[in-house]
Design a protein around this nucleic acid. Structure first.
Lengths: 113, 113
DNA sequence: AGGGGTTTTTGACATTGTCAACAAAACCCC
DNA sequence: GGGGTTTTGTTGACAATGTCAAAAACCCCT
């Protein structure tokens, strides 16, 4: 079935995966850390927010303000979550990539890795 | 070892994979067909060329003009090839994505698929 | 009510994604 | 051998995404 779920940018995809992984601990700083440590993508914190805001406008993610942490200073954190549409887009992206790789590894003269 | 291979855009990645798959049959029209049929990405032919030209400037791919086909009309085809740097970038991209997915599927409360 | 600490938001610019319109060959035919 | 037709490649322009420095907002303390 040719789904027409939204195309994800490469960073968008990684951000969604980070949010998914972090679950209820997904907010600006932790998402950024996940990208830096696990995705070899050391972006600034603003990049994370901007990407998430834009994706929210497209219905790929949601967010809400949490309670103040109670610790010394600190504005309340904004929590993020991947929407069902976001998950669908992620899966579509993954399956396309897997198919393309499978085609490379079987049927061609090129040898990779 | 943290490689610093170039970051690929999502389309760039798919185009490189198509070129790899097509081997010595990789030129404008066939690349576009591969994207349409296998990657759910129906881009125009100009998109393919522009993406490849830009990647060539970055050292991710190479190209050269072939001989005229001999069929009814038709300018000579330009052939494309993925460079070693391109292959490295593709592999880096893949391994990052696989790690991120693995982290999602194990360690989290979220259930996907 | 002012200050230092933590987090988010805004404004701006760079890179990548996208295509319509245009140019270039190569073949055929009279 | 020049014009028409066919196939392919190139340009110019704009939209979407990637990126960050600087500013704003908020919280807790004294």
């Amino acid at each position: 079935m040719a789904s027409h779920s939204q195309q994800l940018g490469d960073l968008e995809e990684l951000v969604l995966l980070a949010v998914l992984r972090l679950g209820d601990q997904a907010y600006g700083a932790s998402i950024r850390e996940e990208l830096t440590a696990q995705a070899d993508r050391s972006v600034s914190i603003s990049t994370v927010y901007v990407t998430l805001m834009r994706m929210e406008e497209k219905g790929l993610s949601r967010s809400w303000m949490g309670e103040p942490s109670g610790e010394r200073g600190g504005k309340a954190k904004r929590h993020f979550q991947v929407s069902p549409e976001g998950i669908q887009a992620l899966e579509a992206s993954r399956s396309v990539r897997e198919r393309m790789w499978a085609r490379v590894e079987r049927g061609s003269a090129a040898h990779v890795g």
